[in-house]
Design a protein around this nucleic acid. Structure first.
Lengths: 179, 179
DNA sequence: AGATGCATGTAAATAGTTACATGATTCA
DNA sequence: TGAATCATGTAACTATTTACATGCATCT
């Protein structure tokens, strides 16, 4: 049901189309919850049937665009999930899995891989900081995701430091080296 | 294919049974990749068929226990995945999704929820630190997961700080309060 | 006129969860 | 002997991905 609540959360900020939702999943929320358009559209249909969202008729633009808004039932649902649901702690992060298994390689290859990883995370951290700052300016359309970007930036920072520490540990600085 | 590589990674440290693998997913690796026993057993069968693991016959203990080890093909597979595979950055973290949507609640409820979240993350950070330190002692069976625990500890620290910052922002300290 | 982006969907395949079935061993 | 843990699996269900189909609008 997580996809449903991700959608409800986005729609609680502003009515949107399936296409808009897919874009939010792609950018921004993507680090936290991502979904393809082909998963979003059927879910929207089920949500209408369940009464947690409604199609907003006035906003049907030039292209056959269908905009949805959250209903009172949906808002109540979301609130209940946020306050009472217990989550299983089982994570599933492919990038992290790979990073952790990098230690299985020979020390030289592993050190190199960790250095690359650290660089990648630093870049992502910078990106998220920029988004967070943009979201922090008054009236930005990204505003509802400011916390998500801040969260992403902090996690990427932590991962960059972790990967760098792993690299340093595997390849300790040689004393009296020519460099 | 991520489950396959998680299994290969664990088996590259030491031959194990499906039951052992399930336990590693539960504890330790669970924050990074988790899987139920009912998913692991069929995957092991497929992996034997693919030749990336082999059943170690000598080790079949009292209960009908089947122990698997990584094959040369499996090791090559793992190495290739670690060094060449490109990953999609799409994440899926239900706990984080909920945390981020917490901002949708009224400020008072949200602040309370963030404080609870921060406490939860602090606890998990402490747990991971303990595991990391245990894994860091020579000869510990947890040794292959030391990096995973360190990673988990760092992420939990970052999340605790994030949640605390969010809580503080929502409920700024009242000046001249009675406390 | 052709490329690109907007926009919504369906169908088939893979991945993951939940519920259940089975039986052995160890410990109180 | 009864409960807990070890140990392996199957079946049904839900979630997610990938590939495809369709068509309109805008820009070059």
């Amino acid at each position: 049901m997580a996809l449903r609540y991700a959608i409800l959360g986005l729609l609680s900020a502003e009515p949107m189309s399936g296409y808009d939702l897919a874009k939010w999943m792609d950018r921004g929320l993507g680090n936290i919850w991502s979904a393809h358009a082909s998963q979003i559209y059927p879910e929207l249909a089920r949500m209408v049937e369940a009464g947690v969202i409604v199609e907003v008729p006035g906003d049907t633009g030039p292209r056959r665009r269908r905009v949805y808004g959250i209903s009172d039932d949906g808002a109540a649902d979301l609130r209940e999930w946020l306050t009472t649901a217990t989550l299983d702690p089982g994570g599933r992060n492919e990038a992290l899995l790979r990073s952790v298994l990098l230690g299985r390689l020979d020390p030289r290859s592993a050190a190199l891989s960790f250095t690359t990883e650290a660089e990648r995370h630093r870049e992502r951290a910078t990106l998220h900081e920029a988004l967070r700052d943009e979201a922090g300016t008054k009236g930005s359309p990204l505003e509802p995701l400011r916390l998500a970007f801040d969260c992403g930036a902090r996690i990427e920072h932590a991962l960059a430091e972790w990967a760098q520490a792993a690299a340093d540990e595997l390849r300790p600085p040689r004393r009296r080296s020519r460099s």
